[in-house]
Design a protein around this nucleic acid. Structure first.
Lengths: 193, 193, 193, 193
DNA sequence: GGGTAAGCGAGACGGTACGTCCGGTCTTACC
DNA sequence: GGTAAGACCGGACGTACCGTCTCGCTTACCC
């Protein structure tokens, strides 16, 4: 079964790139608050309509730009121990989350999601659930769902909660790296003897 | 020692109330995204200048409105056990955080803080550090700073991280209440036998 | 030789007409002092930006509206005598200047020109010099430049001065029509035997 | 019969002077368009209410300031000839009208009068009719009311019309001084042999 | 290779909100 | 009761963007 062949002029890959590049540049230079569709069009040399044709909101433009920078299909580690898997998972996560521009883009997208429920859904489906599922898989290998009275889903919230908290609520001087063994210890030995 | 006598007409308490009420009403009805200084002025029957005179941004208006609803000066519990103190602290926190409108207002303020660094500072100083200090006081009673390899500051981030995560990133069907004993267990017995 | 092809959506003739009509209506109803760009936009059903895009000030809107009412390209009379030409010129001038709304619009524009030097220049170039040149042409046919010690340019100032004076400074009960033979006599026989 | 002694604090002559001085300074520096009651109050160190208490509009403030500069009670010349009287009257008029700041203030007041009918009445009564009556007195000595088919009132309009025209409509490079003999000739020998 | 359908840059459109200025009024404490 | 100070409601300013629309052009597939 083949889909209908598209008719008319094909989408311009040039414009797509230019739009994503302009969005990243604007956010990097002046911050997400300075981002507007109008300015993306201006600085990318495209028309506003072209942007509206392919992305519903400026946040979606930024999200696509971010997706080009980070690779979501990270293999799930399997070292044989919970602590080992956790450490590897968290190390990888931290490395990605601290790439240039990435923390700012993540913060902006999460903030935008507070104002736009439809974007929030796309944001969650694209970013949040993906990594969450990976960590859930790891946990399921070593613990039952409410080992020690703590559900695995709560542990997932703990892990990602700390990370997002330090991104959005309380940018901390504390080194992100020391967080890895701490979280591994906390989650890897949750109140058990 | 006397302060300078105020000169000119006094600030109108009527207008203040009307502005805060209108802001809450708009956010409650149409969401924070629909909030604008212009609309607050229109619906409160005041002039824009009156708003700008007393609040630097619309987020500050909302923050003051929120402060009227929630009482930040909650006494720090002292039950004699870490688990008891934690349970009481968390129960109180959850109760406040789940009052009508409060979660939405908190989400909006935290989001706005991502776009406006100066507001972020005020938001943190007013909301975040206050409760954080209370919980830090509790923890300091029962544990040294890096008991079991986990710093107290990390535990604080864990506790508040989970809460903010469930507010902003992944509004969860999971009952907030079951979270209290889980967090108490996790933090109250951090990897110790 | 071809001019640059216009790009983008064409200017809306509908909006243009609506804006000019609204401006005339507001001035006619409530006077020029009640005119604002905001109100023109409101009453014409257009956006403010559309007005600002095409006219630098509200006075320019009014001037264009006035230009639609009055025809500036009036043929210069040539009856064979100075007195005849003057009479015809003045009669035509008076007729135009006394059309409905026209005196009020002229007064407002001349007043605005006192506050805005750039508009003053446009106003002069559009309205003042045009008729002045016509009358200068007539005078040049019959008199040398300082016949009887009075320069032609002074005579021009006399003729238009009286008219503007009666419009702006001293709205007079005196009939404008009796002014025509008087000015014709005064200018047509300036101190000569 | 005696008027009631005023009760309470007397009007502050200090404030009056400061207000008039500030108004002149603002108009002189930034032009009449930059004048506002608010700014007069600010720069004169007075309260807005004090200004509103004593002057109905900012134009009236300016008019009072102007009256302090120019002396309206100029004696009517009487040289024995029409031409002599005219020459002296016009010379005096021109001298006053060309004092520093005076032309600008006159233009601004005449312009404001176009927008505010009540001020227009005060402006006319104060400035216009005074000098006009003086010139009318002179003319009445030497000519009947419609000598040569030209009414004296028209001649008055001619004289003042030229002056205002050169002030407001067509600021002319032509020297004002050469205007005096020209007007004297024109008016002093109106079409008579 | 001509017809047709979409995408494209450009830019005008009706709107909404911004943050500021000023108008004219009211209120306060002082003199 | 006048005065300086200054807050109040209202309304306009000129600008920036929103999301839509309309141009004339380009590009690509189709017959």
């Amino acid at each position: 079964m083949d889909l209908a062949t598209p008719r008319g002029r094909a989408r311009s890959e040039n414009s797509r790139q230019a739009i994503l590049a302009a969005a990243v540049k604007i956010v990097g230079t002046d911050g997400y608050a300075a981002l507007s569709i109008e300015r993306i069009a201006r600085e990318s040399g495209t028309g506003k309509q072209t942007i509206y044709r392919w992305w519903p909101t400026k946040a979606d433009v930024v999200m696509e730009a971010l997706l080009r920078k980070v690779e979501l299909n990270i293999p799930i580690p399997d070292t044989g121990t919970l602590n080992g898997d956790l450490t590897e998972f968290l190390t990888t996560t931290m490395r990605v989350a601290r790439m240039p521009h990435v923390p700012d883009l993540l913060r902006a997208l999460a903030a935008e999601a507070q104002f736009d429920a439809e974007f929030a859904e796309r944001f969650r489906a694209t970013f949040i659930e993906h990594r969450r599922t990976a960590l859930a898989t790891i946990l399921a290998r070593y613990r039952s769902d409410d080992d020690g009275g703590i559900r695995s889903s709560t542990l997932l919230d703990v892990v990602f909660g700390v990370i997002w908290y330090r991104l959005m609520i309380r940018p901390s001087a504390d080194d992100f790296d020391t967080l890895v063994p701490e979280l591994a210890a906390l989650v890897g030995s949750d109140g058990r003897p």
